[in-house]
Design a protein around this nucleic acid. Structure first.
Length: 890
RNA sequence: AGGCGCGUAGCUCAGGGGUAGAGCACUACCUUGACACGGUAGGGGUCUGCGGUUCAAAUCCGCACGCGCCUACCA
């Protein structure tokens, strides 16, 4: 058999995925058990323009671990993939491509432009699906969806119409966030706040029929051209007399009132605020309260309008700002300018400063849906968030939810299914035909706007499953089991899916929500394109292998973690360890094959021990995965495989397995070793799909699949995930083995501390008053001998060894001695024993202090007190044995 | 301004009322027939600080400091 010494991940990553996909292993139909429980996840659809970044790699790893785990547990498992049309990003991307050809989207016209986007999508969209295959995502590609698919688009229209008919969608004229660059409205969630070092300008407005002035402070002087009032707090004594008077607004010919409103904070600035209802959300609200006119002085391109006056019309907003300030200064009305840090709203896509503008848009009322979602949370604690702290984030957000601006002035997206008659009536329908029928005319114009991308995403968990038809998929897979996503879209997406799911299907879209952590760069900064500090997962795959990367990511779970390549390297080493352990098993497999029954028929201590450890690990793993404790799961796998299986079991079994002579005992040892390995590969598979499949395929024997998949081509993917049988967890075997392990470690410690040459064989004397322990030592005599390189191992009731021996006391009431005539350095040995003694004493002192405290004895649980007493007794015994030993050295 | 999270070994992180953990890094020895991407044995922490609750606090509760993130209409 030819197995290289080093594992080559690329080799394994090359062919298995294609076979899994081709054989339909990812589709839930592979499960033949009609009574199989169901597990389903819908993928957070990545942008069609996107490529795989660390965040995806993390989320996908976790979703794949869960899906593979549940599939192996016999669940009818579906992980449904798809992509999002990503309105603004995609439109921008294609527009940029056009620009290189010297064209704009307006040159093409809407229809041609949209066709161009589709063409782009066909040719270069969905790069990420290739990368998902590399990562090993076991998604059912036969169910792949795209938010702009015809069927999903129809569902979007259907939902829109129903919401409109329910009075939850309306068209209105309001102040909105406008991006002057992208020429579209944005929702509150699509603008980002940034701290900005700016200026606060103090402007003086003359009061009519008086020589007094009132000073207002503003960060945006240009908006004063649209002021329609000055407001003060009604309780502000400084200004009480002014309320009701009129201000002569400089640079304009207008007179505006001084009004009183609670909103004004007397502590801030001068306590008097200029009010510009057309260009500030707060002023807008105040304008409505006081019936103030809205004077629009800034247009959608962020240029000043004719209403700003002839001196300003056509100026850019920042140029206008300079001119307003200069003019005030010229008039002697500029009181002062102070440095001031405030936050500014920017378009999250293009980073242009948002202009609040009054505009006609489509909105969705959220109060009713919000209440239903909140009721679900208070009544059933759904969805259940992991980590739980996000429950509060989610509910707080919902409680403060406002209407959602759902229209966008884009061409790429779901065009709003509303038509206008020549007389201006609005007809909302699922198709133009239906609209014509409703309107009684064919002279209709469709609303040019499209819907916010998140509108279709909100429907994702049921639109992908065939709603509004009562499909098998919808009945089977909805509600889905868990949603895995990053925390930044809890509001944009998670909450909206809950609301829409409840409204249209009647059930919550998912029971659980797992919020992943964030992978930061090594400096603790968020990875971002602009900072160029991102780590490309594909590069990591190439360098360390997909499986090692997955293990690293799975371990991250819900914690924010700095990217640490050393960690991946360590898991690359782990993969290599697995490879070489398997290599050893396979190189010594002649005459043997995997045979699961053998595990229950183990009699030797080390065999019962590894079976116990295996089942314990399996039990812990199932519990950890089900509790979304991925970090714990990875640790369990790592230590079971490396420490228990490689460091101890293989070494203990080695003599039997590698015996030159063929024998029943050798075959049995080999069979057991192969079988334990096969179980370990199954445990590892959800985390490390490639190396496990590669090795599993090489194991000899009829390796069974889970009953639900009988008849399928052999693959570790479809084997049963070991459950961890309680009856095979053998506490006695584990504690007996623990004594052997301790014995071996102590002797090795003596060898190392005494500087005994590695090749030197030494006699070992062990003694215990316990007959059982003596039996344990005797049966393990050969193994102990090999692992500590002993010339002979003697087991007695009482320790009988020459003075010139190194000694140690074991925790189970056993002692050992290593006679070292001529080799031992008495002084060194005394120091070594002294250190042991000190450690014990330190512990004893602590425990005795505890026992000496009457409150402890009275109030602590009895078991606890007894534990301490027993421990003290054990230490006392060990200690006196050690003392004896030290004295014997004289 | 509020809310949330975090502060544990040199580094990256687990843990979480009852004797401080892992990986990496470090020290010594080892090319022993699976693996040097390895083996064996070690060293290393008053668990940010101060108070409180408790028989017992790294763990629970306050407060302070530091670091993140989120929400917010202070011009």
């Amino acid at each position: 058999m030819d197995i290289p010494k080093q594992y080559d991940p690329k080799e394994a990553e090359q062919h298995h995925y294609e076979r899994w996909e081709k054989n339909g292993y990812f589709a839930p139909e592979i499960n033949r058990d009609p009574k199989a429980p169901v597990f389903s996840i819908v993928i957070p659809p990545p942008n069609v323009t996107g490529s795989l970044h660390m965040g995806h790699a993390l989320q996908h790893t976790l979703m794949d671990v869960m899906t593979r785990h549940k599939r192996m547990c016999g669940y009818r498992a579906l992980w449904l993939p798809g992509m999002d049309h990503a309105g603004i990003s995609t439109q921008l991307m294609v527009s940029r491509a056009l620009k290189k050809e010297g064209k704009s989207r307006h040159d093409l016209g809407r229809e041609k432009f949209v066709e161009r986007v589709w063409q782009w999508k066909r040719e270069s969209g969905g790069q990420i699906t290739v990368q998902m295959r590399r990562l090993g995502d076991s998604v059912d590609w036969s169910r792949e969806k795209f938010t702009m698919d015809e069927d999903l688009s129809r569902i979007v229209r259907e939902v829109f119409v129903r919401l409109y008919e329910d009075g939850m969608i309306y068209r209105g004229n309001r102040i909105v966030n406008w991006c002057p660059q992208d020429q579209t409205v944005l929702s509150d969630l699509e603008v980002e706040k940034q701290p900005q070092a700016g200026k606060l300008y103090y402007l003086q407005y003359p009061i009519k029929n008086s020589d007094k002035r009132v000073t207002v402070a503003t960060t945006r002087p240009e908006t004063m051209l649209g002021d329609t009032a000055v407001a003060v707090n009604p309780g502000d004594e400084r200004y009480g007399a002014l309320v009701g008077q009129t201000v002569l607004l400089p640079l304009t010919n207008r007179e505006i009132p001084i009004i009183a409103d609670e909103y004004v904070d007397p502590q801030f600035g001068t306590g008097a605020v200029k009010i510009t209802p057309a260009h500030d959300p707060n002023d807008y609200d105040m304008g409505l309260r006081h019936n103030l006119p809205q004077v629009v002085v800034i247009d959608p391109h962020a240029k000043m309008t004719a209403d700003a006056g002839v001196d300003f019309a056509g100026l850019d907003r920042y140029k206008a700002r300079e001119k307003v300030v200069a003019d005030f200064e010229g008039l002697g009305l500029l009181e002062k300018i102070v440095d001031y840090e405030f936050s500014i709203s920017k378009c999250e896509r293009c980073k242009t400063v948002i202009e609040p503008l009054i505009s006609t848009q489509w909105f969705m009322k959220m109060d009713q849906l919000r209440d239903v979602a909140l009721a679900l949370m208070s009544r059933e604690q759904l969805p259940h968030f992991t980590p739980e702290t996000y429950r509060k984030v989610y509910t707080d957000w919902l409680e403060n939810l406002r209407d959602w601006t759902i229209s966008r002035q884009l061409w790429w997206g779901h065009q709003i299914p509303a038509w206008y008659t020549p007389s201006g009536d609005v007809i909302v329908a699922t198709s133009e035909e239906e609209a014509r029928a409703k309107a009684g005319t064919s002279e209709l114009t469709q609303d040019p706007d499209v819907l916010d991308t998140w509108f279709s995403s909100a429907l994702w968990p049921f639109s992908t499953l065939g709603w509004p038809n009562d499909t098998e998929d919808l009945k089977t897979f909805y509600p889905t089991s868990v949603l895995v996503t990053a925390r930044d879209i809890i509001f944009l997406w998670v909450s909206r899916m809950v609301m829409m799911g409840l409204k249209f299907v009647g059930d919550e879209p998912f029971a659980d929500v797992f919020i992943t952590g964030t992978i930061l760069d090594s400096q603790g900064q968020r990875m971002s394109k602009t900072k160029m500090n991102g780590v490309d997962p594909i590069d990591v795959f190439d360098k360390f292998g997909v499986d090692a990367t997955r293990l690293t990511l799975a371990q991250v779970g819900s914690t924010d973690t700095r990217w640490n390549e050393k960690q991946v390297e360590s898991y690359r080493n782990f993969a290599n360890k697995i490879w070489n352990a398997a290599r050893f098993c396979l190189l010594n497999s002649e005459g043997a094959e995997v045979k699961p029954e053998i595990l229950e028929q183990s009699t030797a201590l080390h065999d019962r021990w590894i079976v116990s450890r295996l089942n314990r690990a399996a039990r812990d793993l199932n519990a950890a995965i089900n509790a979304y404790d991925f970090h714990g799961a990875v640790q369990t796998l790592y230590h079971f495989f490396w420490d228990d299986f490689c460091d101890w079991y293989i070494e203990l079994a080695k003599a039997d397995v590698t015996a030159e002579q063929d024998s029943a005992a050798r075959t049995e040892a080999r069979t057991r070793l192969l079988t334990v390995l096969e179980h370990a590969l199954r445990l590892l598979h959800p985390f490390m799909p490639y190396i496990t499949e590669e090795l599993w395929q090489r194991l000899p024997g009829e390796k069974g699949l889970h009953a639900a998949y009988s008849g399928a081509q052999p693959t570790v993917m479809l084997t049963a995930y070991p459950e961890g049988a309680t009856n095979l967890v053998d506490e006695a075997a584990e504690s007996e083995m623990q004594v052997i392990i301790e014995l071996i470690s102590r002797v090795r410690n003596i060898r190392s501390e005494m500087n005994i040459k590695p090749g030197e064989r030494i006699p070992v004397v062990v003694a215990s008053s316990s007959e059982n322990l003596r039996r344990v030592f005797s049966s393990a005599r050969d193994q102990i001998s090999r692992l500590v390189r002993a010339s002979e191992v003697t087991v007695n009731e009482r320790l009988d060894a020459p003075k010139a021996s190194a000694r140690a006391v074991l925790s189970g009431g056993a002692e050992l001695a290593v006679p070292l005539e001529g080799l031992i350095d008495f002084e060194q040995e005394r120091r070594r024993l002294q250190r042991e003694q000190e450690k014990l004493q330190a512990e004893a002192t602590k425990l005795e202090a505890q026992l000496g405290n009457p409150n402890f004895v009275e109030r602590a649980p009895v078991e606890r007190v007894n534990e301490v007493r027993e421990r003290i007794a054990a230490i006392a015994q060990q200690s006196s044995q050690l003392q004896q030993t030290v004295e014997n050295l004289q």
